[in-house]
Nucleic acid binder design. Structure first.
Length: 265
DNA sequence: ATGCCAGGCACAGCCTGA
């Protein structure tokens, strides 16, 4: 394993946010970047600009909504899968899987699920069940694997500034949290929480109510490592400076750094 | 209980996000 930096970023519109994306790539130089909420059809994806920045890319878009991409520095990602197994008739672009830099990467944009209860929440749980099934296979695959993306789940009350005002939100529902806990029960390591067990760390601050200035955030973007990759985890963090820029996405990038050698067992 | 801000599209008010 070579030292790697892997990031996930819900960009909230890759076309309107392209200058911010390029500035972030240039400053942070992630080896692998998973993007969500492209809000662009494939023919609108800014491939040339991203390649000019030194990144190969795979993308699964659709007009106006959703959309995921995997960017790899100085290389071409090898596509493994587009779409989640069991969701073949899903018309929403939410999952892309690729191999790059010796790692298998699943880039996901889990459904929001609001309002709940209702069909959108049912769809979220159905999608999550398919993810759990696929994640189980990936976990024991023998390949160093990461699941990265916007999971649209606040895992615990420590992952939100104030759960009371969100108690009815799909992101905090016991059923949503139970699915996330099932991922952890499979053995996946939540990189941020593993390295910072007691800290309040957020990845999303909505545009309402001055939440960014008040640091009233949620942690919903996650990087999960399987048993073959977790021993290499060295560092993790949030590029909060991105959220402070003009016309920023409501999410900030989250990243991990892997070391060349195993660090733990 | 609802709107708040923002992107995208049908380019004018909706729909969606979380």
């Amino acid at each position: 394993m070579k030292a790697l930096r892997i990031a996930t970023f819900n960009i909230n519109g890759i076309r309107s946010r392209l200058p911010a994306l390029l500035a972030w790539l240039e400053r942070e130089r992630p080896d692998i970047a998973c993007l969500q909420e492209l809000k662009a059809a494939d023919r609108q994806f800014p491939r040339q600009e991203i390649e000019a920045a030194g990144y190969g890319c795979l993308y699964l878009g659709q007009p106006a909504w959703n959309g995921v991409a995997i960017l790899t520095r100085d290389s071409e990602p090898l596509e493994v899968r587009r779409g989640l197994p069991g969701m073949q008739d899903d018309d929403q672009s939410r999952y892309l899987e690729a191999a790059a830099h010796g790692v298998l990467v699943g880039c996901l944009y889990l459904p929001n699920g609001n309002p709940q209860p209702g069909p959108k929440f049912d769809y979220k749980l159905r999608w999550f069940e398919c993810l759990l099934k696929h994640a189980q296979a990936l976990y024991g695959s023998g390949h160093p694997t990461i699941l990265a993306g916007d999971f649209n789940v606040v895992p615990t009350d420590m992952d939100i500034y104030n759960p009371r005002s969100w108690v009815k939100d799909a992101l905090l529902q016991p059923a949503s949290r139970a699915c996330f806990e099932q991922l952890l029960a499979q053995g996946w390591v939540d990189a941020i929480r593993h390295l910072y067990p007691d800290e309040r760390i957020y990845t999303f601050w909505d545009y309402f109510r001055n939440h960014w200035a008040r640091n009233a955030g949620l942690r919903i973007d996650h990087l999960l490592l399987n048993r073959d990759l977790a021993p290499y985890l060295k560092q993790a963090g949030v590029d909060a400076w991105v959220r402070n820029e003009a016309k920023a996405s409501d999410h900030a990038p989250v990243w991990i750094e892997l070391s060349e050698r195993r660090r733990r067992h």
